[in-house]
Design a protein around this nucleic acid. Sequence first.
DNA 1: CCTGCCGGGTA
DNA 2: TACCCGGCAGG
Length: 478
Amino acid sequence: MDSRSVLDKPVVGTRLGAADFGYRPTRSVPRDNRLEKSAGGGLRAGATTNGTVLLKCVRDGQATKDNAPAEANGRRLHDGEKTGLGEHRDTGCTTSLKRSSPTHCPGTNGQTPGSFMHLDIRTQERQVEMAVSFRPAPGQNVPQMERQPLPSSHIPVPRNRKPSGHADKEVMAAAVLTSLSTSPLVICPSFAPTAAVPEPAIRAWKEALSASYSSSTSGNWSWDASDQSVPSTPSPPLSNDANKNFLLPSQRDDVSEDVAESTHFMFEDPIPRKRKNSMKVMFKCLWKNCEKVLSTSSGIQRHIRTVHLGRNSDSDYSDGEEDFYYSEIEVNMDSLTEGLSSLTPTSPTTAGPPPIFPPLLADVPDINMNGTCSHAPTLLSQSAPSTLCHIRTDHAYQGPAVTHVRTVSIGEKRQPASSTNGTGNKNQALIMPTPKSAAGNRKPRGEAKKCRKVYGMEKKEMWCTACRWKKACQRFTD
DNA sequence: CCTGCCGGGTA
DNA sequence: TACCCGGCAGG
């Protein structure tokens, strides 16, 4: 359904919508960025601007038309996009990756974006317009996405289209959802192959990123999955879950590398890991009401071309439009299961802290003293910070009180006093292993004579205030 | 019982 | 916060 509507409109737009839709949350930003950059030249040209973009652009341009090697247009797209690494792209991709960031890897997958791009591109005119128009607009749309600063490199272009239209996007989204429902497991489009190429780079990424990401979502994975190797995780996006789900569907495979990248950012964490495991890439026709799933991109493209686009299968050129109409779906059993589970729990963080906590507490006192929570981060950093903070707070609170008391009592006594104080006591208790705590608090009576004894009742005026108040003598302290 | 002072209460 | 005081506990 969506697809059709999309089709009706300029392919590009549609695609974008779709792609965007899925991605937006995560990816959209990247795209926008990309677009902006690429925009300059028009999609294609623009694309070139960035490494990533270039890839896509190249792809689009070359692959689609020029390169469109014998193999198959579809292929080109896919290969290029999906593989990301793929021949043409490889170069581009690699570069981009290097430059920009790991995210790029996703780019590998980026296929999706790429695909979209292609389509868009195809309608060169439109695209150009798009690019131009988008730039500005994108910013708007992008914002959310953009929030995450993507390295320029990521920016890869394409997705921008988003701006094209909410309606389209919605449609796409719907389509995606549909597809998702159909194939829950399917995550993404990217293909296994991709992973291979980039892996080196990706790995580095992952390693770096790995630390950051926490869980995996099945959905995201799919996209990234193509890049599996890619470490999407870098970013910490929170809200991803929902988005993820949408994205997951398949659609966006097309989005291509760029998308993938963005996705990674967005979803980051989860995706990369899971995919690695066992991903099978399937190509699903996104055409409305068409659930066709093929194992090869060429096949799906052909299907789209012939069945939906009414073109000759062999056809001339695969503009890449086909790409828009199908998505790569990675089916990852593990990812699905795990991803979901992992996401929900986010256990890592949570889990981590608890153990740490105790130690922290021990430290806390010090911290409190300082007044800031600074150290907390270290241990608790992830999960517990809040806790620490609280603790500190308490301490701080107590601190004064305690000290106060102390002043009065001075040496001997008072620990008890502190104990008396409610909140303060707790912390102290934790912190200070005071012997006294238990008993009453009273400090042992000092040897020294106090005001009372010294001056006698007659000269009560001479007593220190504390004595007068029946408090611990401040004048004659032990 | 005296002394010291804690814990509370009042202004 | 400044004062007061009841009452407990050590000596």
